[in-house]
Write a protein that binds this DNA or RNA. Structure first.
Lengths: 86, 86
DNA sequence: AATCTATTTAGATAAATTTCTAAATAGATA
DNA sequence: TATCTATTTAGAAATTTATCTAAATAGATT
């Protein structure tokens, strides 16, 4: 696995906050965007970075897009980090 | 703990490679720089980012500066990530 | 004291990132 | 089919980052 995208994705407080929000369950793009003081377009950009890193994935339903955490990629990252502090 | 500096530090392949090198033990700035195809000044810049993130620390001896991994900060990062994939 | 060695700091530049506004897409509903 | 709703995409501007060259620092050696 290549971690370039993973670290890039987590290297932003907005994107880490999005991950924190998604711990409690699935949310739509609009619900996520409502939590931030920035445009929906900007939040959409952040979601695309997280998605590209495989840290989240989407499910479409009606004309909503729901986002969900991808725990296994966090798990892979944790395993990689364990070589330094495990 | 604030992870802004931590993720920033790990969001670069050169800095991740430096961490990998340091797994095997302490190395001087010059020894680290010799492994990369860039100037010593640039490697020094990368070391400063890792140091600011507390991922490495330095020990001076004669006119050498030796760098060492700080395992406990990697450990804190791992613990933080476990909320998403643990 | 003068010089050598190891390393960092300063200043500049090119590239990448974050954010905005405006426009596009696409499915749902009237 | 026309329009409404949810979301993304495009293009532009401001900021941050990675890199270089040149200069500075500071301890060691002659």
């Amino acid at each position: 696995m290549a971690f370039q995208d993973t670290f890039k994705a987590l290297n932003d407080p907005v994107r880490r906050d999005i991950c924190t929000m998604l711990r409690s369950g699935v949310l739509s793009a609009g619900e996520i965007a409502a939590s931030f003081d920035m445009t929906q377009a900007t939040v959409s950009y952040h979601l695309s970075i997280l998605k590209k890193a495989d840290l989240i994935f989407e499910k479409k339903d009606k004309n909503f897009i729901y986002y969900e955490l991808n725990a296994s990629v966090f798990q892979e990252l944790i395993m990689w980090l364990q070589q330094f502090g495990g």
